[in-house]
Computed example of a mutant assay.
Amino acid sequence: MVGFSPPVDLWFGYEGHDPDAPITQEHMNHARLCVALATVFGNALRDILLTYFSVQYKDIYQVILANEVKLTKGRGRPLLNPDQSQLVFPDPTRQTTGTVDQFDLSLLYILIRNISTVPAPVTGWGCDPLDQPRDVSLGASVERIRYFRNHISGHSPDGKISQQDLKDYWTKFDAVLHDIELIMGGKVYSQQFEKQKEHVISIYEAC
Protein backbone atom coordinates (compact mmCIF):
# COMPACT_ATOMS: atom_id res chain seq x y z
CA MET A 1 0.00 0.00 0.00
CA VAL A 2 1.42 3.35 -1.03
CA GLY A 3 1.54 5.86 1.81
CA PHE A 4 0.00 9.31 1.47
CA SER A 5 2.49 12.14 1.01
CA PRO A 6 0.90 15.59 1.25
CA PRO A 7 2.20 18.32 -1.05
CA VAL A 8 5.13 20.19 0.42
CA ASP A 9 3.29 23.50 0.24
CA LEU A 10 0.49 22.06 2.40
CA TRP A 11 2.76 22.43 5.44
CA PHE A 12 4.56 25.57 4.33
CA GLY A 13 4.61 28.16 7.08
CA TYR A 14 2.89 25.94 9.65
CA GLU A 15 4.55 26.11 13.05
CA GLY A 16 1.80 24.83 15.32
CA HIS A 17 0.71 26.28 18.67
CA ASP A 18 3.49 27.06 21.12
CA PRO A 19 2.75 25.10 24.35
CA ASP A 20 5.12 27.41 26.24
CA ALA A 21 3.28 30.57 25.23
CA PRO A 22 1.82 32.53 28.16
CA ILE A 23 -1.83 32.09 29.09
CA THR A 24 -3.83 35.04 27.80
CA GLN A 25 -7.22 36.54 28.59
CA GLU A 26 -8.56 34.71 25.54
CA HIS A 27 -7.50 31.40 27.12
CA MET A 28 -9.26 32.42 30.33
CA ASN A 29 -12.41 33.26 28.38
CA HIS A 30 -12.38 29.81 26.83
CA ALA A 31 -11.89 28.18 30.22
CA ARG A 32 -14.82 30.06 31.74
CA LEU A 33 -17.15 28.91 28.96
CA CYS A 34 -15.98 25.30 29.31
CA VAL A 35 -16.68 25.33 33.04
CA ALA A 36 -20.14 26.83 32.50
CA LEU A 37 -20.93 24.12 29.95
CA ALA A 38 -19.75 21.27 32.17
CA THR A 39 -21.51 22.50 35.31
CA VAL A 40 -24.64 24.56 34.64
CA PHE A 41 -25.56 22.99 31.31
CA GLY A 42 -24.58 19.57 32.61
CA ASN A 43 -27.04 20.03 35.49
CA ALA A 44 -29.76 21.08 33.06
CA LEU A 45 -29.30 18.03 30.82
CA ARG A 46 -29.29 15.67 33.81
CA ASP A 47 -32.57 17.17 35.02
CA ILE A 48 -34.07 16.84 31.54
CA LEU A 49 -32.94 13.22 31.29
CA LEU A 50 -34.45 12.24 34.63
CA THR A 51 -37.64 14.25 34.14
CA TYR A 52 -38.43 12.82 30.72
CA PHE A 53 -37.75 9.29 31.90
CA SER A 54 -40.03 9.95 34.88
CA VAL A 55 -37.61 8.11 37.15
CA GLN A 56 -35.71 8.83 40.31
CA TYR A 57 -31.98 9.44 40.25
CA LYS A 58 -31.17 5.92 41.49
CA ASP A 59 -33.38 4.21 38.88
CA ILE A 60 -31.89 5.72 35.72
CA TYR A 61 -29.67 2.69 35.07
CA GLN A 62 -32.68 0.40 34.84
CA VAL A 63 -34.09 2.55 32.04
CA ILE A 64 -30.76 2.61 30.22
CA LEU A 65 -30.37 -1.17 30.50
CA ALA A 66 -33.85 -1.61 29.05
CA ASN A 67 -32.63 0.29 25.97
CA GLU A 68 -29.30 -1.50 25.64
CA VAL A 69 -30.03 -2.91 22.18
CA LYS A 70 -30.98 0.50 20.81
CA LEU A 71 -27.87 2.13 22.26
CA THR A 72 -25.46 -0.58 21.14
CA LYS A 73 -26.94 -1.34 17.71
CA GLY A 74 -28.96 1.75 16.86
CA ARG A 75 -28.69 3.14 13.32
CA GLY A 76 -26.54 0.16 12.36
CA ARG A 77 -23.69 1.05 14.70
CA PRO A 78 -23.07 1.59 18.41
CA LEU A 79 -24.23 5.00 19.58
CA LEU A 80 -21.79 5.00 22.49
CA ASN A 81 -18.00 4.99 22.48
CA PRO A 82 -16.17 2.38 24.61
CA ASP A 83 -15.79 4.68 27.63
CA GLN A 84 -19.47 5.62 27.56
CA SER A 85 -20.50 1.98 27.21
CA GLN A 86 -18.37 1.00 30.18
CA LEU A 87 -20.01 3.73 32.25
CA VAL A 88 -23.62 2.83 31.46
CA PHE A 89 -23.17 -0.93 30.90
CA PRO A 90 -20.51 -1.89 33.45
CA ASP A 91 -18.98 -5.32 33.81
CA PRO A 92 -21.77 -7.52 35.27
CA THR A 93 -19.25 -9.22 37.57
CA ARG A 94 -18.85 -6.07 39.64
CA GLN A 95 -21.28 -3.67 41.23
CA THR A 96 -22.22 -0.53 39.33
CA THR A 97 -20.36 2.47 40.71
CA GLY A 98 -21.13 5.06 38.04
CA THR A 99 -23.70 7.78 38.64
CA VAL A 100 -25.55 10.28 36.49
CA ASP A 101 -23.16 12.93 37.80
CA GLN A 102 -20.43 11.20 35.80
CA PHE A 103 -22.32 11.55 32.51
CA ASP A 104 -20.73 14.28 30.40
CA LEU A 105 -22.53 16.48 27.88
CA SER A 106 -21.97 14.10 24.97
CA LEU A 107 -23.38 11.07 26.79
CA LEU A 108 -26.33 13.04 28.17
CA TYR A 109 -27.15 14.29 24.68
CA ILE A 110 -27.04 10.77 23.21
CA LEU A 111 -29.38 9.43 25.89
CA ILE A 112 -31.84 12.32 25.61
CA ARG A 113 -31.91 12.17 21.83
CA ASN A 114 -32.22 8.41 21.45
CA ILE A 115 -34.13 6.95 24.38
CA SER A 116 -35.99 9.76 26.15
CA THR A 117 -39.39 11.23 25.31
CA VAL A 118 -38.10 14.75 24.61
CA PRO A 119 -39.67 15.82 21.28
CA ALA A 120 -37.25 16.53 18.45
CA PRO A 121 -36.71 20.17 17.43
CA VAL A 122 -38.33 21.56 14.28
CA THR A 123 -35.27 20.84 12.14
CA GLY A 124 -34.78 17.38 13.65
CA TRP A 125 -32.04 15.96 15.82
CA GLY A 126 -28.46 16.65 14.80
CA CYS A 127 -29.24 19.71 12.67
CA ASP A 128 -27.89 23.21 13.19
CA PRO A 129 -30.16 24.68 15.89
CA LEU A 130 -29.22 28.24 14.95
CA ASP A 131 -31.17 27.85 11.71
CA GLN A 132 -34.41 28.00 13.72
CA PRO A 133 -33.99 30.82 16.27
CA ARG A 134 -37.74 30.89 16.94
CA ASP A 135 -37.81 27.24 17.98
CA VAL A 136 -37.65 27.45 21.77
CA SER A 137 -38.72 23.86 22.39
CA LEU A 138 -36.83 21.68 24.83
CA GLY A 139 -35.39 19.64 21.97
CA ALA A 140 -34.05 22.81 20.34
CA SER A 141 -32.42 23.84 23.63
CA VAL A 142 -30.75 20.43 23.90
CA GLU A 143 -29.45 20.82 20.34
CA ARG A 144 -28.09 24.28 21.14
CA ILE A 145 -26.18 22.84 24.09
CA ARG A 146 -24.69 20.24 21.74
CA TYR A 147 -23.74 23.04 19.36
CA PHE A 148 -22.07 25.03 22.16
CA ARG A 149 -20.17 21.99 23.38
CA ASN A 150 -18.89 21.10 19.91
CA HIS A 151 -17.86 24.61 18.91
CA ILE A 152 -16.36 25.69 22.23
CA SER A 153 -14.79 22.71 23.97
CA GLY A 154 -15.06 19.85 21.50
CA HIS A 155 -13.42 21.29 18.40
CA SER A 156 -11.57 24.42 19.46
CA PRO A 157 -8.30 24.70 17.49
CA ASP A 158 -6.47 26.88 20.00
CA GLY A 159 -8.46 27.13 23.24
CA LYS A 160 -9.11 30.84 22.80
CA ILE A 161 -12.25 32.99 22.90
CA SER A 162 -12.18 36.72 22.19
CA GLN A 163 -13.86 39.22 24.52
CA GLN A 164 -16.61 39.90 21.99
CA ASP A 165 -17.25 36.20 21.41
CA LEU A 166 -17.36 35.69 25.17
CA LYS A 167 -20.07 38.33 25.51
CA ASP A 168 -21.99 36.81 22.60
CA TYR A 169 -21.83 33.34 24.14
CA TRP A 170 -22.90 34.66 27.55
CA THR A 171 -26.01 36.10 25.89
CA LYS A 172 -26.75 32.87 24.01
CA PHE A 173 -26.16 30.76 27.13
CA ASP A 174 -28.54 32.90 29.16
CA ALA A 175 -31.26 32.67 26.49
CA VAL A 176 -31.06 28.87 26.29
CA LEU A 177 -31.15 28.46 30.07
CA HIS A 178 -34.16 30.77 30.24
CA ASP A 179 -35.96 28.68 27.59
CA ILE A 180 -35.26 25.50 29.56
CA GLU A 181 -36.49 27.06 32.80
CA LEU A 182 -39.80 28.04 31.21
CA ILE A 183 -40.46 24.41 30.26
CA MET A 184 -38.95 22.63 33.25
CA GLY A 185 -40.37 24.98 35.87
CA GLY A 186 -38.90 25.70 39.28
CA LYS A 187 -35.30 25.42 38.12
CA VAL A 188 -32.65 28.07 38.76
CA TYR A 189 -30.13 27.51 35.99
CA SER A 190 -29.95 31.23 35.23
CA GLN A 191 -28.97 31.96 38.82
CA GLN A 192 -26.30 29.27 38.72
CA PHE A 193 -25.05 30.75 35.48
CA GLU A 194 -24.85 34.29 36.86
CA LYS A 195 -22.71 33.04 39.74
CA GLN A 196 -20.52 31.17 37.28
CA LYS A 197 -19.97 34.30 35.20
CA GLU A 198 -18.61 36.12 38.23
CA HIS A 199 -15.97 33.53 38.96
CA VAL A 200 -12.40 34.13 37.86
CA ILE A 201 -10.80 30.74 37.21
CA SER A 202 -7.43 29.55 35.99
CA ILE A 203 -6.98 27.61 32.79
CA TYR A 204 -5.90 24.59 34.80
CA GLU A 205 -9.18 24.43 36.71
CA ALA A 206 -11.02 24.11 33.41
CA CYS A 207 -9.32 20.87 32.45
Rank of each mutant, 00 (worst) to 15 (best):
I48C: 00
R32I: 14
E26N: 12
V100R: 10
F103I: 06
Q84K: 01
A31G: 08
P7I: 04
C34H: 10
F12W: 06
L45Y: 04
L80N: 08
N43I: 01
L33E: 05
I115H: 11
L111S: 11
D59F: 06
V88T: 01
I48W: 00
Q25G: 11
R46N: 06
W11D: 03
V88A: 02
L107F: 00
D104R: 09
V69Y: 11
R75I: 15
A36V: 07
T93G: 01
S116R: 12
F12R: 05
H27E: 05
P92M: 07
I110G: 14
N43C: 10
Q56R: 01
Q56C: 04
Y61S: 00
S54L: 12
F41G: 00
T97P: 14
S85L: 00
Q102C: 03
V63H: 14
L111H: 09
S85N: 06
D83R: 04
A21R: 09
R113T: 06
L37I: 05
P78R: 14
I64A: 09
D101G: 14
I64P: 13
V35C: 04
L10R: 00
D91V: 07
I60L: 08
P7Q: 00
S116F: 12
R46Y: 05
N43E: 12
D83V: 13
D20K: 06
L33G: 05
L108C: 04
E26V: 15
A38H: 15
A31W: 04
A36C: 03
Q56N: 01
L65Y: 07
Y61R: 02
P78N: 14
N43R: 13
V63D: 15
W11F: 08
G98K: 05
T39F: 12
F12L: 09
V40I: 02
R113I: 07
N43T: 10
Y109W: 05
T99V: 04
